[in-house]
């Protein structure tokens, strides 16, 4: 635990530790971290290895999964893509995620703007309600929500069966309801950092509340919105629970929920299962690796800037 001294503290310490000792300590730390990282990567690496090998060489032979050699190819990926109709399910994910993210950010920024710029009597109450709602386990609401979704009517272009149940729309709405709290918090903290003067200048110019929000504050929040959009995309993409409960038509399942809906073959052919899982995991991994900054920014927004 002594290895935990921060470099800053160490550097600032009047008595600098001997160079050698310091290095050897770092070595130990690197060793520890390397071991942990290898352990962490292993399940993914194993999945990749399994996915590249044909079932005939692994599943049907003794200790086949543990063997080396033989064919390595993309067959499992192609088969998973085709058999599981993954293209359709990726499309389903986008049909849900894109409107949901836009609506979430739109509504959250409105509330955030209102509560950070104007005082209402129930500002705090509202924030408490949102936060509490956001923390609630989804399963607390699912039973009545399920019945509500079956009972609530919806007009035809939005719903193809007149209900909220089994509709992309219904899925979008529940994501919206649940995610609002988080985004509202982040954005209201963000808005609070924007100098009042900007706001006031707009008011002096005679801008309405709406214009102040839409043309002045919202553009300023672009970095925050980008970070939140990245995070929200991952979360909605990864949703499993709402998908399996609020949908029934096989083709409508967003890709993460669809994985559970695959044919039984996937559950005996582990090579195929590995390939399917990796295909589904890939987009979030790419988003994370490419937009890592946005990602971490989203999580730490406000916390570093106070």
């Amino acid at each position: 635990m002594t290895a935990n001294a921060t470099p800053v503290a160490r550097a600032a310490a009047p008595v600098a530790s001997p160079e050698k000792k310091k290095q050897s300590r770092h070595l130990g730390t690197h060793f520890f971290l390397t071991v942990i990282c290898i352990t962490w990567l292993f399940p993914l690496v194993w999945a990749v290895y399994t996915a590249f090998r044909p079932y005939s060489e692994t599943g049907a032979n003794p200790r086949g999964y543990f063997s080396v050699g033989g064919a390595y190819n993309f067959d499992n990926f192609l088969k998973a893509w085709k058999d599981a109709e993954l293209f359709q399910h990726f499309l389903d994910t986008l049909i849900v995620a894109i409107p949901a993210i836009i609506l979430i950010l739109f509504f959250a920024s409105m509330i955030a703007f209102a509560v950070s710029r104007y005082s209402f009597r129930f500002n705090i109450a509202l924030l408490m309600l949102f936060t509490a709602g956001n923390l609630l386990p989804q399963q607390v609401v699912i039973t009545p929500l399920y019945r509500m979704y079956l009972a609530l009517p919806m007009v035809s272009p939005i719903s193809d069966n007149g209900m909220w149940y089994d509709q992309f729309f219904g899925l979008i709405m529940i994501h919206l309801a649940f995610q609002l709290g988080f985004c509202t918090f982040v954005l209201s903290n963000y808005f609070k950092q924007v100098p009042r003067e900007i706001n006031e200048a707009a008011v002096v110019d005679g801008a309405s509340v709406w214009r102040t929000y839409w043309s002045v504050l919202l553009p300023l929040a672009r970095p925050a919105l980008a970070a939140l959009a990245t995070l929200e995309f991952t979360w909605i993409y990864n949703d499993f629970f709402w998908g399996i409960l609020l949908l029934t038509k096989g083709w409508k399942f967003p890709v993460t929920s669809a994985l559970n809906n695959l044919s039984g073959q996937f559950f005996t052919d582990y090579n195929l299962l590995a390939a399917g899982s990796l295909i589904v995991a890939l987009p979030t991994l790419i988003v994370y690796l490419v937009l890592q900054k946005q990602f971490v920014a989203g999580l730490t927004l406000g916390s570093t800037k106070g």
Partner: peptide
């Protein structure tokens, strides 16, 4: 409209 066997039974009531 094909639904996975287990899932079909799970949601039959709502369906």
């Amino acid at each position: 409209n094909t639904v996975e066997h287990g899932k079909f039974q799970d949601s039959i009531n709502a369906y």
